[in-house]
Design a binder for these strands. Structure first.
Length: 204
DNA sequence: AAGTGATCATAG
DNA sequence: CTATGATCACTT
């Protein structure tokens, strides 16, 4: 697919190209899933379970730098006692990722955006350590009932941010006194500097 | 311009 | 609502 533009992939899959992504934010990802035959659908599993590979498209600028953070998974806000890094959803999803860079600048019409060279990545020792450290720190705050005090500034490479239809959506979380309260759902995201390093390392 | 918080579509 | 796919858009 490298070098091909999205309109070509869309035509092959009989999918229409939207004018912009405001109402089609997951369009590029789903287009590539369709092209590659990913099977997970909306299940919380790796896209290619049989290969142990997660597929992620990543929007880049003309210098190859990511334009956005990368969503990983929803964050569990209750029933997290006994949960460890090794059995977390973040750990499993990031075991192996096929990154598919796609031009993402809004000045380029969606259909004309080109696909870059895909990168099959596994976290190296340092990356794994950074991810685990951030995950454990964030999960501890959640366990202590401080989810509503966590901002996207926490974490060096992994951050916690809202992941919901809007700011009014509610889900159960742990309160500071240990009881159940309602909070805006959150998700884990990889910060731009981290994914930028992944892409850079692949070409060095 | 970067970074954080908010949001959009869809399936089950 | 939860989970998938993410990008938008406002604030700093």
């Amino acid at each position: 697919m490298a070098g091909i533009c999205l309109a070509d992939i869309a035509r092959d899959n009989q999918i229409e190209v939207p004018v912009d992504l405001r109402r089609d934010k997951g369009w590029v990802g789903q287009l590539i899933e369709s092209e590659l035959g990913a099977l997970a659908g909306s299940k919380p599993e790796q896209d290619f379970l049989h290969l142990g590979v997660e597929l992620k498209t990543i929007p880049i600028d003309h210098n190859g730098k990511p334009l956005e953070t990368t969503y990983v998974t929803v964050a569990p806000l209750t029933n997290i006692q006994g949960m460890t890094w090794e059995n977390s959803l973040v750990y499993h999803k990031l075991q192996r990722v096929l990154w598919v860079p796609v031009e993402g600048e809004r000045s380029i019409p969606v259909g004309q955006r080109r696909i870059g060279t895909p990168i099959l990545w596994q976290p190296n020792r340092d990356q794994a350590r950074q991810l685990q450290q951030d995950w454990e720190e964030i999960m501890e705050l959640i366990a202590l009932g401080k989810v509503d005090k966590i901002s996207a500034r926490h974490g060096e490479v992994l951050q916690l941010r809202p992941k919901a239809a809007n700011s009014k959506a509610l889900t159960e979380s742990i309160a500071e006194d240990g009881s159940i309260q309602l909070s805006n759902p959150r998700g884990f995201y990889l910060k731009i500097n981290f994914t930028q390093q992944i892409l850079a390392n692949a070409f060095s």
